[in-house]
């Protein structure tokens, strides 16, 4: 196990290095730069723009800029945002809380709901419920999030006045109930798509297990159906879900770009989008590296957990 871990960690370091290089190159080679927003307004002269470019070090060759950035990163310095004039880690820390709040609640909702729909659909395959769930999932997957978000706002906020039209809480009122009230809208939108995804995975995973010989054996032994489903089928069907959960971990922190924008949720997704728009190189690179680390970490944890949950996997791996 430890050999496996060390091998995976080494791979991860190499991968991170490659990700940083590609990310840095693409970001800097994209036309425009952090100063183009000032050029647009016509308020700053070219002399001012050229001076700022030199002060930010943007006039140096790209490889020099990359090596300098990497040297600082290895020394623990993630850089200072061009737009905020604050350390990148401080900025990320300020945005990660709201994202975690939104993503955890919507993921939890989607997992529970999705698992339930998926299991029921598999057990009563081709029933009316299964057909409706399948159609519903297809619709949910096809609906553009931004559109659905706006519909929710127009129906429940503007029309009925039941839900706030966005924000994390009312200014001056940060109570738990107020926050919960604000969470409903974006949570429903995010959960809609994820529920569809989770239910489909759960259904197919369950179907696979349900037709195995040992389930038939259990039935032949005369065990009660509920007992078979929970003790024999579900436990095995949940195995593939560990991998999916592991791969889902990064999105918990990288946030939901579209939903955060529509519901004015001050999270990571919006920070990323804004930073790209401003060509705020240090912040974009910071978020990119953090996400890459989380992806690698997520899949590593999933693999380890899988080995623990199903001892056969580890045996095959050695």
């Amino acid at each position: 196990m430890s050999g496996f871990l060390i091998r995976r960690l080494l791979q991860a370091v190499v991968l991170l290095f490659i990700v940083s290089m590609i990310g840095f190159a693409i970001l800097h080679l994209a036309p425009g730069g952090p100063l183009s927003q000032f050029a647009a307004s016509g308020d700053m002269t070219q002399a001012d723009l050229d001076r700022l470019s030199a002060q930010l070090g943007l006039d140096r060759p790209l490889p020099v800029q990359y090596v300098e950035w990497l040297r600082r990163l290895l020394g623990g310095d993630w850089g200072v945002s061009y737009r905020d004039q604050q350390p990148v880690l401080t900025i990320i820390a300020a945005h990660i809380g709201p994202t975690l709040e939104l993503m955890l609640s919507s993921t939890l909702l989607a997992m529970l709901l999705g698992a339930w729909i998926g299991i029921l659909g598999a057990v009563r395959r081709y029933s009316l419920f299964d057909s409706l769930a399948t159609i519903g999932a297809m619709i949910a997957l096809s609906i553009p999030t931004f559109w659905f978000g706006l519909v929710i706002i127009y129906v429940f906020s503007v029309g009925l006045g039941w839900l706030p039209a966005g924000n994390r809480f009312t200014v001056g009122d940060g109570s738990f109930l107020n926050r919960l009230h604000h969470l409903i809208g974006p949570c429903i939108v995010l959960a809609l798509v994820s529920t569809a995804v989770w239910s489909r995975y759960m259904r197919s995973s369950m179907l696979e297990v349900i037709n195995q010989d040992y389930i038939r054996t259990a039935r032949a032994k005369g065990l009660p159906e509920r007992y078979i489903l929970v003790r024999h089928a579900l436990r095995n069907a949940l195995l593939p879900m560990i991998t999916i959960t592991g791969l889902h971990v990064p999105t918990l922190l990288s946030g939901a770009l579209v939903t955060e924008t529509v519901f004015t949720w001050p999270g990571m997704g919006r920070l990323f989008l804004d930073s790209i728009n401003y060509r705020d190189y240090p912040t974009v690179m910071g978020i990119l590296m953090l996400t890459a680390i989380l992806v690698l970490l997520g899949s590593l944890i999933a693999d380890v957990l899988y080995g623990i949950a199903d001892p056969r996997i580890e045996r095959y791996g050695q």
Partner: peptide
């Protein structure tokens, strides 16, 4: 092209042929 591209060298190094822009013509 996206704003960040238009307002980069394309604009400030006069690489465009003609632009449709909204901008101010004054000193501050």
């Amino acid at each position: 092209m996206p704003g960040a591209v238009i307002w980069g060298d394309f604009y400030v190094r006069s690489q465009f042929q003609a632009l449709l822009v909204g901008t101010a013509f004054r000193t501050g």
